[in-house]
């Protein structure tokens, strides 16, 4: 039950992020979640949107270098310690996380975490086995 994440290459220069977010704004693209990883000269903006195809097309047309990656979206209770429990479970199951970012949404009582793993299918099985709820792309739209 993977979710599509879009990653965008951005130079590390004043104003670049503003230009990029303007493209999203002008095309009425709403973000569900976003994170930025940065190296010294460039950054990678990773985010989840409702309509992946539309956003990818708009960004490519605007000249951005992007990649679409399968990630997993996990749901957890919105309370202290929830993330600790979840991360420990994953660690105990031998799952290595390449990166992650977490967010809360309008749905009361829940928080979410996007994780990138190298083997999505296997990770998904581990999550199911451990009773961790995964959210699909459609569900993400409504939370």
């Amino acid at each position: 039950m993977a979710v599509k994440q879009i990653s965008v290459f951005l130079e590390n220069k004043p104003g670049r992020l503003a230009i990029f977010t303007d493209v999203l704004k002008d095309n009425d693209i709403n973000l569900r979640a976003l994170s930025i990883a940065e190296a010294s000269d460039f950054g990678i903006v990773r985010f989840i949107v409702n309509d992946v195809y539309n956003a990818a097309t708009v960004l490519r047309d605007a000249g951005y270098i992007i990649s679409v990656t399968d990630v997993l979206a996990l749901e957890m209770p919105d309370k202290p310690g929830a993330m600790a429990d979840l991360v420990r479970t994953l660690g105990d199951a031998g799952m290595n996380l390449e990166y992650l970012y977490a967010f809360t949404a309008t749905k009361a009582g829940s928080a979410y975490m996007i994780i990138k793993v190298n083997d999505v299918k296997k990770a998904s099985e581990i999550l199911n086995k451990n009773g961790i709820r995964q959210v699909d792309q459609e569900t993400l739209k409504d939370i």
Binding site: Q5, E38, I44, I65, I66
Partner: peptide
């Protein structure tokens, strides 16, 4: 110039290419 083929969502992969 970064290319579609060379780009990845992974920072370490891009750094390795650099």
């Amino acid at each position: 110039e970064m290319t579609q083929e060379m780009f990845s969502d992974s920072l370490s992969e891009v750094a390795a290419r650099e």
